[in-house]
Design a protein around this nucleic acid. Sequence first.
DNA 1: GGCGGGTTGAATGCATACCTAAAGGGTCAT
DNA 2: ATGACCCTTTAGGTATGCATTCAACCCGCC
Lengths: 226, 226
Amino acid sequence: MSIAAERLTASDRAYAELLDGIQSGALPAGFVLAEVEQAARLGISRTPLREALRRLAAEGLVVQQSPRVTVVADLDAADIRALFEIRRALEETSARLAAARGDRSVFAALADQFAVVDLQDAAGRDAYYALIARLDAELDAAVGNDYIASALRTVRTHLVRVRRMARDKPERLAASAAEHRLIARALASGDADLAAHATHVHLHNALDSILDSLTDLPTDSEGHSS
Amino acid sequence: MSIAAERLTASDRAYAELLDGIQSGALPAGFVLAEVEQAARLGISRTPLREALRRLAAEGLVVQQSPRVTVVADLDAADIRALFEIRRALEETSARLAAARGDRSVFAALADQFAVVDLQDAAGRDAYYALIARLDAELDAAVGNDYIASALRTVRTHLVRVRRMARDKPERLAASAAEHRLIARALASGDADLAAHATHVHLHNALDSILDSLTDLPTDSEGHSS
DNA sequence: GGCGGGTTGAATGCATACCTAAAGGGTCAT
DNA sequence: ATGACCCTTTAGGTATGCATTCAACCCGCC
């Protein structure tokens, strides 16, 4: 997938590898990340691995449970609610700013694409997720605020884990597409209030759906099944 | 000053030292931070210094100007506007959440203290800044959202530089105290809307004053005075 | 005299060795 | 038998040395 493999540093590769492990669930919450062990597993020395661990810790994906042990951060319903609180704050602000500053034609084109998404097969859903990523990227570009973009980048990193924990239901996906279309159209018309409120509604519904699907399938990590 | 000096790691000391240098202006924007040079200056080796530089880079206080040279990040009027955009987003949200969740008596007590601040001498101003820090801390505690607290912590780190670039005028300080008092009182009464709007007004006025004082004394960094 | 290639220098990325401290187990004494 | 103390082991923090890469400068050639 990575077109520009280029010459990544060992630290970058370790970060990407660990991040993927955490996001995919291969490294579950509470998993102990020991330096020598992970360095050996990834075929690098402790120095670049430490850098990767520090980056992950700065983003909150791993936590120092004690001065000597680093573990993959937990992510419970309270965390998800907290993530959506900051997400609401940042994305509503972004929507307002982008509506005022953005190139309207870009968002008009995106709105058209949201109108015709096909969610029947897996390929169509992947394309839909890619379209959302494009909307996010265009939003960041229109806002032109690196501080907001950086904070949102961290939030989105965490949200990948959330999305994996709570599989979207088909009817939710269709509604989500309609909500995204409305957001894009609001941005295309420069309607800051509508963009912000549509974002608020979308995030409310998304959180609702996620918390709902979490109560369906409890925690999935019932370790001691006696 | 640091009461609990404890046993800080060399990396932590390097981070604190460099952060203080950047915030105080001893390390001005554009200053090149070479690893061997700074490691020698701080009396540590390159490894912990690298960690400190990475932390500063993650927060945006230093930037990798090229693959081989790290410099202290610039901070112009556009950056300040951007900082206040994310600050508005996060603090208005915090105000709303704290108004709904916080311990009202705590903020009532803070409001009383904002009513009696003495801004005549330097000691009183220092006490005033400490009071603001206490309000921020109580706000974070009332919100109880580590993601927001972490994002705000980064923003506040940058704002220390801003505050130093733009000295507050006496009349602005008095108005600022009144605005803080209103915010605290809104939190004490659980009025989320008022808390959010008062925060908005306060940040608008603060930004206005800062940008004003910046145009007064141009850049202060006129390096080539021929 | 100017331009190009090669060489050298320096700075970062990485690996490894060392040091310190903490935790766990084992043994001895009560 | 139980508890306390010591020793060993292990893991993270730090220092240092080596490899790599980029850039600047110098020398030689046109």
